[in-house]
């Protein structure tokens, strides 16, 4: 059963990649624009579709208009400290069912900025604010980009891997 699902999601992915190649070729990101650390695990290697960060809004709208992925479910930010970048992972669905289409995009750690999806999917508003609060990722065009969990006076982005932590749990670090 899970084999069915993984086959299905691979097929969906290939279809979407082919369609993007045809209609938005400039949006597909060339892989390897961020260095991989020596010795450590290569977290950048992926079989999912990786797009250019600045084109994410165009890609998302294309997916909705042409490929019927009208449901934006999940936005995740990942701090890849060793690679010097943030990765943003978007999960889209079709209402007719089926597994998620995963779209990834990468941002330099020094200037994490990309277009917001909130103007097109208001459901992204809180998730983008969360990524801003905890990782410091700036979503351009977000109508209300404020901290969501921590208080406004707070400095720093606690979910970044280089944020100071202390306590019994972190003794081994």
């Amino acid at each position: 059963m899970s084999d069915d699902n993984s086959e299905l999601s691979a097929r969906q992915r290939d279809e979407a990649r082919a369609a993007l190649q045809r209609d938005l070729p400039f949006a597909l990101s060339p892989s390897g624009s961020f260095p991989s650390p020596e010795g450590g695990p290569d977290l950048l290697a992926t079989s999912d579709i990786v797009v250019e960060a600045q084109q994410i809004a165009a890609v998302a709208r294309y997916l909705r208009a042409s490929l019927n992925y009208i449901y934006l479910s999940n936005i995740t930010a990942v701090d890849l400290l060793a690679h010097g970048c943030f990765e943003l992972v978007y999960h889209f669905y079709r209402l007719s069912g089926g597994p998620a289409l995963t779209i990834k995009t990468r941002l330099p750690r020094e200037k994490p900025e990309l277009p917001s999806l909130t103007p097109f999917w208001p459901g992204a508003a809180f998730q983008e604010r969360e990524a801003y609060d905890l990782f410091g990722i700036v979503f351009k065009g977000h109508p209300d980009l404020r901290r969501i969990y921590m208080w406004d006076e707070f400095e720093g982005f606690p979910m970044r891997k280089d944020f100071v932590r202390q306590g019994d749990k972190y003794l081994s670090e």
Partner: peptide, 11 residues
Amino acid sequence: PKELAISYSVT
């Protein structure tokens, strides 16, 4: 409404 529910990612 339906359309809003989808664009708001409601589940």
